[in-house]
């Protein structure tokens, strides 16, 4: 199908983007990579009056180390996330996750900011941001605000972004030698959205798990943390017993619904299988940046 008619404006700065949004008398949408927005327009699921193309705002680009965090610009394409040496060094689960995202041609255009603004619960990157304890940087008419990833995702395709606010970057704490992290997922076919995905981030003190951050995708309306499974791991070494305890605890954390693709019981089963798989891999030693 073809999209409904809309107007188009290309902007080159964040200030100009915010002004264009504020000045639009109808419905406006920011256009980043377009890999979710254009399908929605072609299907006429959405029909805005104006697209504001933010794709050429230079200040939204770039990946850099700033203090103890890695700052990833909103326009970072999935293909860059997959290949960036800085991301492999400092946030390797993003490299692992990007390998599961869509297909090569979509990764050439789709962006970090677009993925986090859309907040598809099946998407890999939102789950990674919760596991990493990332901070989302948001530009608005009143200036920039920072929101912890745990507070940023609110509901199905819903975030704290107010209409007209622009996600400018995400800041991820740098990996440390005492941290092991891993992303893995179970999908029917390569490039499909996950039936279940898991971003795991464990801080160790010697052999003992000090804190665990587990975030699942595709099992609820937002990327889901698993606090009961996380506490089942804390203070214990990572081995068959603690892993079994975490898998058992997962029942208190997740309550997926039945849907056309999968029953709730099957999804829950897959979540447990995946948790066991990811934790066993992390128990085998420090995380290695192997492309999944």
């Amino acid at each position: 199908m073809k999209a409904r008619a809309f107007d188009y404006r290309r902007v080159t700065s964040v200030t100009e983007a915010l002004a264009a949004y504020a000045g639009c008398r109808g419905e406006a949408r920011y256009l980043a990579g377009g890999q979710s927005l254009l399908p929605a327009l072609n299907l006429r699921l959405d029909g805005p009056d104006l697209l504001i193309d933010i794709g050429r705002i230079d200040t939204l680009r770039g990946i850099s180390v700033e203090g103890d965090a890695l700052r990833i610009g909103a326009l970072t394409r999935h293909a860059e996330t997959l290949s960036s040496p800085l991301i492999v060094a400092h946030a390797p689960i993003l490299t692992e996750a990007a390998a599961f995202m869509a297909h090569p041609a979509i990764r050439n255009l789709g962006t970090m900011g677009g993925s986090l603004a859309l907040a598809d619960p099946a998407s890999e990157l939102p789950a990674c941001m919760r596991a990493l304890g990332a901070v989302i940087e948001i530009a608005g008419p009143a200036g920039t605000r920072n929101v912890a990833a745990d507070d940023y995702f609110r509901d199905l395709f819903e975030t704290v972004l107010a209409p007209g606010e622009l996600l400018s970057a995400v800041r991820v704490p740098l990996a440390r030698p005492d941290i092991r992290m891993r992303f893995d997922e179970i999908a029917r076919r390569r490039g499909d959205y996950a039936m279940v995905g898991l971003a795991a981030h464990l801080a160790f003190s010697g052999d003992v798990v000090e804190t665990a951050r587990l975030a699942f995708c595709s099992v609820g309306p937002t990327p889901m943390r698993a606090p009961a499974a996380e506490s089942a791991l804390a203070g214990r070494s990572l081995g068959p017993e603690s892993i079994a305890a975490a898998k058992a605890a997962l029942a208190a954390d997740l309550a997926p619904d039945d849907d056309d693709a999968l029953s709730a019981a099957a999804r829950m089963h897959l979540a447990r299988v995946l948790l066991g798989r990811v934790l066993s891999a992390l128990g085998d030693g420090p995380q290695r940046a192997e492309a999944a």
Binding site: M1, Q35, A105, I106, L109
Partner: peptide
């Protein structure tokens, strides 16, 4: 026209992209 089939793929600045998902 939704990025699923790949029949529309062209190179943009040397990289493959879906021509149906670009204006």
């Amino acid at each position: 026209e939704v990025g699923a089939c790949g029949a529309c793929i062209v190179n943009l600045d040397g990289q493959p992209v879906h021509a149906c998902l670009m204006l």
